[in-house]
Design a protein around this nucleic acid. Structure first.
Lengths: 161, 161
DNA sequence: CCCTGATTGTTGCATGCGCAACCAAAACTC
DNA sequence: GAGTTTTGGTTGCGCATGCAACAATCAGGG
């Protein structure tokens, strides 16, 4: 009396999958935390602020929130409030959008540019430190596996010099 | 006039390191989100609740918060409030600790056991689904690289049957 | 025993977040 | 071009979170 083998869609993840899941959760939390701490200790804002500033800078031109929300993996209302805070701190400004009066364009201020640069000066070494246990070859292999896992294409992360 | 090469501690992460960093951030967020959504859609609480219940169940005996906080990568005040909510829902109970009157022991209730089981029925397939793009061999390699990166030893993640 | 210091756990407060409702402008339909 | 739907973005509310201060107990001297 053999079971069909087609009915049961392996409901229990294999041990290797479970190991990968656990490692992913713990290690990402751990390194994320390390870098965030470095920024906080330097009296700088959190990484999401950097990412917004970096995306705006990279775009090179005032950008709609909706065009930022997707690459940032962020929900519209999250971005809305993030921009609220950043605008209050004078890092970005909302400027009117003539083509679509519902929205607006986001543009970093001089202070915004300066802050991104200051953050990178802390962010970069912190990233280096957090990932120091693997070498470049391992890092590439790790990135490859992660991207295969997530089906995500390559994106830049920050300043190159 | 050659630079010493000893002074400058590579402050800019190499491209492979940056790629690994970005991939780690995005992919971990993405798969974490996927699994949390599955639980939410099933009307179940979030993963941290599962993890607490699982650790308690795994211990097999009433356990001090401090002995949970470390393996859970959680701060004492976070655990304190998490237990508040779980206790209010009748999933765990705080029982007096004779040896140390400062603290107490945590014990899952019958409802707590049942909930963990119900969550695993959703959690396991969701994990499987979220990680389906890699096979077992790749998962092992991924786990190995992540653990090397984080310097973290193996831990179980949940029910095996 | 009393004093000091470390450990264990909780809490007040301000801030942040998720959700669902909401508004205004655009786009589409007839 | 009035009516409906969709899109872009914000907001009120309740809950969660981080931080720093706090209380209570324990442990180790003198």
């Amino acid at each position: 009396m053999q079971q069909s083998g087609l009915k049961a869609p392996a409901r229990i993840p294999s041990d290797p999958i479970q190991r990968a899941w656990v490692a992913l959760g713990r290690v990402s939390q751990s390194v994320q935390c390390e870098v965030e701490s470095a920024l906080k200790d330097a009296g700088l804002p959190e990484l999401s602020w950097y990412t917004v500033l970096w995306e705006l800078e990279r775009a090179g031109t005032p950008t709609r929130p909706k065009d930022l929300a997707i690459p940032l993996f962020i929900l519209p209302y999250q971005l809305s409030r993030l921009v609220d805070r950043m605008e209050k701190d004078g890092l970005v400004k909302r400027i009117a959008c003539k083509e679509d009066k519902r929205g607006h364009l986001l543009e970093p201020t001089a202070k915004g540019f300066a802050l991104r640069k200051a953050m990178w000066a802390v962010y970069a070494p912190a990233m280096e430190e957090a990932l120091k246990r693997i070498n470049d070859k391992e890092a590439l292999e790790l990135a490859r596996l992660l991207n295969k896992l997530g089906g995500i294409e390559h994106v830049d992360c920050g300043d190159k010099g």
